[in-house]
Design a protein around this nucleic acid. Sequence first.
DNA 1: TTTCACATGTGAAACTTTTCACATCACTAA
DNA 2: TTAGTGATGTGAAAAGTTTCACATGTGAAA
Lengths: 210, 210
Amino acid sequence: MNKIPPRTMERLSMYRRILSELEQKGLHFIYSHQLAELASNTSAQVRRDLMEVNCAGIPRRGYRIPELKEKINEFLKDSEEIRVALVGIGNLGRALLSYFNMRSKRLKIVAAFDSDPEKTGRVISGCRTYHVNDLEDVVRRQKISIGIITVGAGSAQKVADMLVEAGICGVLNFAPVPLKMPKTIHNERIDITTSIEKVAYFSGLNKRVQ
Amino acid sequence: MNKIPPRTMERLSMYRRILSELEQKGLHFIYSHQLAELASNTSAQVRRDLMEVNCAGIPRRGYRIPELKEKINEFLKDSEEIRVALVGIGNLGRALLSYFNMRSKRLKIVAAFDSDPEKTGRVISGCRTYHVNDLEDVVRRQKISIGIITVGAGSAQKVADMLVEAGICGVLNFAPVPLKMPKTIHNERIDITTSIEKVAYFSGLNKRVQ
DNA sequence: TTTCACATGTGAAACTTTTCACATCACTAA
DNA sequence: TTAGTGATGTGAAAAGTTTCACATGTGAAA
Ligand SMILES: NC(=O)c1ccc[n+]([C@@H]2O[C@H](COP(=O)([O-])OP(=O)(O)OC[C@H]3O[C@@H](n4cnc5c(N)ncnc54)[C@H](O)[C@@H]3O)[C@@H](O)[C@H]2O)c1
Ligand SMILES: NC(=O)c1ccc[n+]([C@@H]2O[C@H](COP(=O)([O-])OP(=O)(O)OC[C@H]3O[C@@H](n4cnc5c(N)ncnc54)[C@H](O)[C@@H]3O)[C@@H](O)[C@H]2O)c1
């Protein structure tokens, strides 16, 4: 079975969230143009995306919401929970801990690590925290498959190496440095500073001269 | 003068950061393949990107680092500081405040807003905080051009409307809902949950069946 | 029934982004 | 000087993504 195109995958994650809300409101059907409206894109895009997931709608009735959710889940294959480790219990790390362990059932941050002994050996937002020296051990024992890196730029590569060593499958990196790791490991980066600069640039508040 | 392609723009932001570090180490020249290595991409990509910015290198010597930085700054046009407002002084909002007002000189979060009176009227990480009712007023008076939204999903659209009303040029939205706003306003979204799901999906720890 | 209005599903076109491949050029060393 | 090495700059191909446009099909109303 083929992998879904990355962009489509991102939108499917969003559709699923929207569909859950709609379902809770008691709706059973939705048109592509309605979903498009809710997701701020076009109906053609929505239909293409749903095609990717083998979802059939009914002309003049739209798509059956429960079926849609089911199909997306099946393709994204996270009926099983995703066990996540977070490294770097700083300002950002703590924000993520409180967020995910508040609300997500699929995504679970099951262990957090730091090099500062002040921050470890406790439970923060329901998550046990460990010294980073125990990383490999805990990751293996807890069968953690994803790592989130929220340490400073200077330590990010070292932490990434440890995670790889520990047998992680994928990494989400918030530090503003690209990481080197085996191509077999998926490596996603969120660069908040760049995102703001991008907004500034494309807002055109930078009137070009030349 | 033409706008730079979005992807290229993102990478330029990164190159600039890398170049600053190299400059501090006392380096004066760099090859496209070296910059590629540092940025985790290919030398052809780097050369294309630099072309976009009219940067000429010298065969067998590489690119002159100060000139490169200068050219990127010129194109990204942020010699001038970018004045930013943050709305939603929660866990994530506070992390952002501490981060940006620690280190960035170009990007300045000059005002933060919340609806909870407990959180306003103070100074957090060097940033004054206001009640959200004062948003329009403060944004106008302080000539703020970019807004960061870190309120809950339920309030995000309302806050976006207020920012638009106040004359903002661009928005960076962390709430997991797409916002509706005039197409003239650039609107970027960071969806952390989707990013983790994406890592999980492409890590292949979701072994496809069919 | 039949007709009509309107959603879906999907090739194909259009656009964007990345990669390839190589002519060109600058420096080095003989 | 000249030859050789190894960079750059860039058309053109390839890959990825979005948009278009319309045949097909469904339900509802006449
Ligand atoms: N906070 C933000 O809003 C924000 C925004 C953009 C980018 N970032 C990036 O995210 C990362 C974290 O930011 P932050 O504000 O939370 O920083 P922070 O300094 O508050 O937290 C970093 C944490 O990492 C820990 N740490 C350092 N080295 C470590 C190591 N080798 N092993 C384990 N733990 C280690 C530190 O003890 C600290 O607790 C940084 O790379 C930063 O550039 C943060
Ligand atoms: N914290 C994270 O790691 C994280 C991760 C992913 C997404 N997000 C998203 O970021 C947003 C903020 O997350 P958080 O964890 O900081 O939440 P939070 O609840 O800690 O903070 C939200 C803040 O917004 C304020 N607020 C609510 N309505 C408001 C309004 N109308 N005007 C002004 N202020 C208002 C609240 O008083 C609160 O201080 C949420 O949308 C969340 O989904 C957060």
